[in-house]
Design a protein around this nucleic acid. Sequence first.
DNA 1: AGAAAATTTGGTAGTAACTACCATATGACT
DNA 2: AGTCATATGGTAGTTACTACCAAATTTTCT
Lengths: 199, 199
Amino acid sequence: MGLRELKRERTRRLISDKAFELFTDHGFGRTTVEQIAAAAEVGPSTLYRYYPTKETLVLEFVEDSMFGALNWFREQPAELDLPDGLQSVIELVLDQLERNPDRVRAVYELAGQTASVSAHLAEVTWRWRNELTVELAGRLAGDSVEFTAALAAGAVMNIIEVVVQTWVDNPDGTEVKDLAHEAMGLLRGGGIPLPTVQA
Amino acid sequence: MGLRELKRERTRRLISDKAFELFTDHGFGRTTVEQIAAAAEVGPSTLYRYYPTKETLVLEFVEDSMFGALNWFREQPAELDLPDGLQSVIELVLDQLERNPDRVRAVYELAGQTASVSAHLAEVTWRWRNELTVELAGRLAGDSVEFTAALAAGAVMNIIEVVVQTWVDNPDGTEVKDLAHEAMGLLRGGGIPLPTVQA
DNA sequence: AGAAAATTTGGTAGTAACTACCATATGACT
DNA sequence: AGTCATATGGTAGTTACTACCAAATTTTCT
C-alpha cells in the first residue's frame, strides 16, 4: 500500500471519529459540517469528497458491516445450502457489528434523535435487503422466484434488526448470537403470531 | 365543517397535486419548493406550514394509508384474535393503497430515482413497524413479549412491502389480495428458505 | 351588522447542506 | 530531477428550511 492510500485511510478515519465526537457531545443537528471539518483539520471541500452527505458520516460503519457479509455471501458456491448460508450471513453481520459496540449504540442513539439519520439508516437496510433479494433469486429455482427471494431476504433483515435493536436497548442482556438463535427458533417453531391465511 | 377547514383541505390537496405533477414531469431533484408554491399559487411560507419537508409532499398518501390501518388495529378489543387481526391490518393497508394506484406507482418511481425519497419511505415503514410492535406487545403475554412482538410486526411489514413491490413492478399481474394470501401461505407453509437454527 | 379575537397567509432575512469549479500542493513514476 | 496523476482547499452559488412579523381573512361576540 502506497503512502497515498495510507493517508487517505487516516484522514477518512480522523474525519469520522471527530464527527462522532461532536455528534455525541452536541447532537447531530447542532453540529455543522464546517465544525467537523475544522476539528479534523481539513477543508469542508475535502470532507465532502470522503462523505457526500452528513448522514454517511454516521452510517459508514453499519453499512460496511452489512454489505461485507453480503459480499461474502455472493462469493459462495452455487451449491451452498441456503438456510445454512443465510444463518452465516446473519452471524457475519452481527460479528462485524459487535466489533464496535459503542459505535453501534451511538448510531442508534443518533437515529432515535434525528429523523434524517433514522431515515438513512432505514434506507441502508432497505437497500441491503434488496440486494440480498437479487442474490437469493439467482440461487432459487421453481415458481415465483422473485417473490420467494424477497420474503426470505425480508425475514433475514428482520431477524438482524430485531436482534440488534434488542441488543442496543439492553447492553447487558443476552448474547447477540443467542438472541439470533432465539429469533430463528421462534420463527421456525411457530412461536410468532403470523397473519392467518383465509381466502 | 367551517369554511376555514374546507379551504385548508383544498389548499393542502392543491399543493400536493401540483407537486406530483412537477415531480413526475421534471423529477424530484429538478423541482424546487418555490416552483411548487408558485404552481399552487401560495407563498413558500404557506407551503412549509402544510408540508414541513419536500419528502412529505411525496409520502403523505402512503403514510396515511399505513397509519390509518394501524389506528384501526389500535381500536380493536383486547380479545381480538391476533393472527386474524394482523391479516386485517395487511388487507386494510392494501385496500387503502389500491384506492390510488397511480399515486402509489409514482411514489415508488420517485423513490427509485431519488435517494432521499427512498430513505424517507423506508423511515415511514420503519416507524410504522415500531408502533405496530408496541401495540402488539400490549396484546401478548408470556416470555420475551417485546421480542416476539417485534418479530411479528416485522413479518407483517415484510408481507406488505413484498406485495406492494410486486404489484408496482407488474401492474397487470396477480391481484393484490391474492398476492398477500400467497405470501402468508408461503411463510406459514415453510415455502421460504429461512436461516437454520444450530447452536 | 359591526367590532374584536383568532388564525391563516405571504414576505423578509438568515442559516447550513451541498455543488461546480479552479488553483495549488503533494505523492508516484521514470 | 522532472513529469504526471491525484488530493486538497478555497470561492461562489443554489436550495431546503427556520424564525419572525405585518397584513389579510375567517370566526365569534355584542
